[in-house]
Simulated assay, not measured.
Amino acid sequence: MIEEPPKLQIKSDIRRPKQAQIDAFRNIPTGFLCDAMEGQGALGMAIQPVCTDGSLPLHAHGPALVADNGPAEILATMGALHIAQPGDIIVAAVHGHKNCSAAGDRFCGMMKNKGVAAFVTDGQMRDYPGIVAAGLPAWCAGLSPNSPYSNGPGKVGFGATLAGRHVETGDIIVADHDGVVVVPFDRIDAVIAQLTAIQELEVSLDAKVQGGYCEMPAVEAMLADGSAKMM
């Protein structure tokens, strides 16, 4: 018989971005980041803000602390809370399991007390009024009042795949009303380097559209060179 793993494994040498790298993502829209990563980077759009009426902040950024739980499990998330540092975003993977909460109001309150910046999960959450009262921004796959278990096994500080994208501890997470984007650790500086140019282009195009601009020069060029035709 294969030996069973420990109930909980916590990585001791967790890599973290520098504070200046983290600060570079403050108030950056998720769309800008996807533009800087060939149009990609977002978790599946089943992951949405738990609250959209303004009762909770709709922007969060920080380094991922990944809690890889099994379905209907919370033990790894408990381990992540135990080692979390202020500004971390706890990313709780439950392998897409539905009909069970991955965290509730008290857990959100404890994360807020620990200084966690936000909570992201591919599972559901519960105790909505208490979540709002706790004040911790959160992104999830909906709500369910069912309770999770804490039997393990679980892993903290490694990586996990959730909502169609792999997230490693130390990656940058940026979340807003549009969704959640993952900036891989090794691409942080490259993405930061592109943000100024992307912001300038966005501001310029916004001004043109507000001024009445509605042209499609790319389509005009395709019609001109024959790669598109009027039928």
Rank of each mutant, 00 (worst) to 15 (best):
V174G: 01
T169Q: 13
K155M: 10
V116W: 00
I14L: 15
G212P: 05
P137E: 04
P17I: 09
C51T: 09
F185H: 15
K11R: 15
L33M: 05
G41V: 12
R106K: 10
A72H: 12
T77A: 15
S147P: 01
N69R: 01
M110Y: 13
V182D: 00
A67R: 09
P217E: 12
S147K: 14
L81T: 09
M78Q: 12
G44I: 03
E200D: 13
N113C: 01
A138F: 06
W139Q: 01
V183F: 04
L58P: 02
A193G: 14
D206L: 06
A46Y: 14
F32Q: 13
A163P: 02
Y149D: 10
P6T: 02
M125N: 02
T121I: 01
A141F: 03
H82S: 10
E220C: 10
V183H: 02
L143Y: 11
L201I: 02
T121H: 00
G54P: 04
E202R: 10
N99Q: 13
Y213P: 02
L201C: 11
L43W: 08
Q21T: 06
H177A: 14
H97E: 11
A163Q: 11
P71K: 08
N113I: 00
P148C: 12
Q40S: 14
I188D: 03
A20N: 12
M1P: 14
P6K: 09
K98P: 00
A36P: 06
I74N: 09
V167P: 04
V181A: 06
T30W: 04
E168T: 07
L75K: 01
D189Y: 07
I188E: 03
A134R: 03
A117G: 04
Y213R: 03
P217I: 14
P6Q: 12
G135V: 04
D171F: 11
A60G: 12
D176K: 08
G179Q: 04
S101H: 03
A163N: 09
A190V: 07
A228H: 07
P5H: 02
P63N: 10
P137L: 06
G142R: 03
D178W: 12
P129M: 10
E200H: 08
P71W: 10
A46I: 15
E202W: 04
I28Y: 02
A103I: 00
L56H: 08
E202I: 05
H177Y: 06
V167W: 08
Q21M: 03
A197E: 15
A160F: 06
H82Q: 12
T196R: 12
G211D: 13
I192T: 05
K7V: 07
P86T: 11
G70D: 10
T169C: 15
H82C: 04
E38R: 09
P148S: 11
Q9A: 08
D88W: 02
G79Q: 11
D189F: 04
